[in-house]
Design a protein around this nucleic acid. Structure first.
Lengths: 310, 310
DNA sequence: CTGAAAGCGCTTACAG
DNA sequence: CTGAAAGCGCTTACAG
């Protein structure tokens, strides 16, 4: 049948309610037009902003995307990858769950599910990774506080279990060291990653004897929660205690006080990850290297000179 | 082949890396194990909380779900429904885009894609709807402010283009009328639905001559944005101006001041919508009626007695 | 109880 | 250029 004829028939068929069966087509062609995206939690605005740029990029190529949270549970992540394999998905973009072994990713690739990583790396997986330069980013925040005159600076939130966590902590430690400033072990409060947890960390922070005059926070959510907690205790964030965030969510600019934070290139990460996957799908060679997006410091009102208390 | 034999083979097959092809199975059985979920914006924490309970409900029945935003664009919603039909999805849970004609839903149902609505109604669609009792909810908030002594109360955010918008406005108007309080047209600032927009509405609100002493907000996001804007202008939200939210997001409790708001039963809406859809899929009769979840007022620190200014 | 065959709806390679 | 056939990987109805 000539193409023109086929098109005419299809047009007519559509007009009278014909529904194209993608399962059947996919069975024959082994291309499904489906891309999986799995992150820790889509409710987290950091991922939500990444997802939005992935969405607009994939839309353009008429790929359907399936979203899933793994909540850092390896089992959930595996179930999702299984589902993608069973559906014959064309590829997956993932922010790997804590503890993801490289074998999981290699297995997916070997079964025809090319992967691209975002936000976190999995050593030796041999796939492209797109993330911010975290050590550099917390370095920016820490140096900013140091230049304002702060000497006792805390680091609140995050975990050593992810490459991101280790890198951000590194950046803080290096900046302190470079400035010749000492650190107390209890100035680091690991763990918090949400607004709620940041809020709760405030009392722990304020309860420290001679507590630091400034805090470098894991992300904007923790920073905003911490500021709320500080305000609740009757102190003024940005005046009594300087606070920096990380990510520069839309929310950072309208927090009270407006949050000094590190822009983390979410849109850029999403866009480039989607592009890389699409390139892979179209058979182009994509280098499996790590691409670091360079963060930028956005100074607002949550940081200022230290107020020495008597 | 006996079932036992088949199972043994399958077990072995899986062990050596066999991947079940769901497309093929679905082609034969016309069940795909896929459920679509489409809402205005998954980044909105209100929907995110609903999605979470849908997710946990569907997980239990081993249904995969595909998520999509329609951003209130009918075209995006139609494309998504088309995709679901082409993939042979088993059903769809949707918060319909503004202006969704009942024909769109009827068409989906006729093509074997049963639908359940959440948050918004589409008159005459003949499918189950799960939502909060919005008029009752804003009534609760408005009456609370009235009982504190407020007489000039604004309503900020929302739109008349959705049933939810009309109902929430109705609830406010009725409560004011019932208390014998007059309303000025400009006390209503329609539109805002985000934190950013609530923040921006603050200046418009404060610029009103004899501005109201309290504001009933469309949702928690608008309320928190508004409070930030009020604080930025040097006034104290909760003292100088009372503010109520709607939804009772996790964030409401840790806002500064903690937000008085209306709990909207997100988890309940999600859970019941998912259940109803699963019931439909298993062939049970599900009544196509509207189920209203009864909201509750949660009083916190963002509301207080009016401060009369000279 | 068991095994071989038909068929879901597409696309592609092939024969005419 | 055109049309009929094969085949993707399952499940189910059927014959033995």
């Amino acid at each position: 049948m000539a193409d023109a004829t086929r098109d005419r028939i299809k047009d007519h068929a559509r007009a009278i309610g014909y529904i194209y069966n993608r399962r059947a087509a996919s069975l024959r062609t082994s291309r499904s037009g489906i891309v999986g995206v799995v992150v820790h939690d889509i409710m987290n605005p950091f991922f939500a902003e990444i997802l939005r740029s992935i969405e607009s990029e994939l839309d353009r190529s008429r790929q359907t995307f399936i979203l899933s949270n793994h909540y850092d549970q390896l089992e959930k992540q595996r179930t999702f990858i299984d589902t993608l394999l069973q559906l014959g998905a064309d590829g997956v973009i993932m922010s790997p769950a804590i503890g993801t072994p490289k074998e999981d990713i290699v297995m997916a690739e070997e079964n025809g599910l090319p992967a691209v990583l975002i936000a976190r790396n999995v050593e030796g997986a041999g796939v492209p990774v797109f993330r911010g330069d975290d050590a550099y980013g917390t370095g920016l925040a820490t140096n900013h506080l140091i230049s304002l005159g702060h000497k006792r600076i805390a680091m609140i939130g995050g975990t050593d279990q992810t490459s991101t966590g280790r890198d951000r902590y590194q950046g803080y430690v290096r900046a302190m060291d470079a400035a010749g400033l000492g650190m107390e072990p209890h100035w680091r409060i690991p763990g918090p990653r949400t607004k709620q947890a940041g809020f709760e960390a405030a009392s722990q922070f304020l309860a420290m004897k001679d507590h630091p005059t400034a805090a470098v926070c894991w992300n904007d959510l923790v920073a905003i929660g911490l500021m709320n907690g500080i305000a609740r205790a009757g102190l003024a964030p940005g005046v009594d205690i300087s606070v920096t965030g990380y990510d520069d969510l839309e929310e950072a600019a309208i927090a009270t006080p407006a949050l000094t934070t590190v822009w983390n290139g979410q849109r850029e990460v999403g866009r480039r990850a989607a592009r890389a996957l699409l390139d892979k799908l179209s058979g182009q060679a994509v280098s499996p290297s790590q691409e670091l997006i360079r963060p930028e410091l956005h100074v607002r009102q949550s940081t200022g000179k230290p107020v020495e208390r008597q």
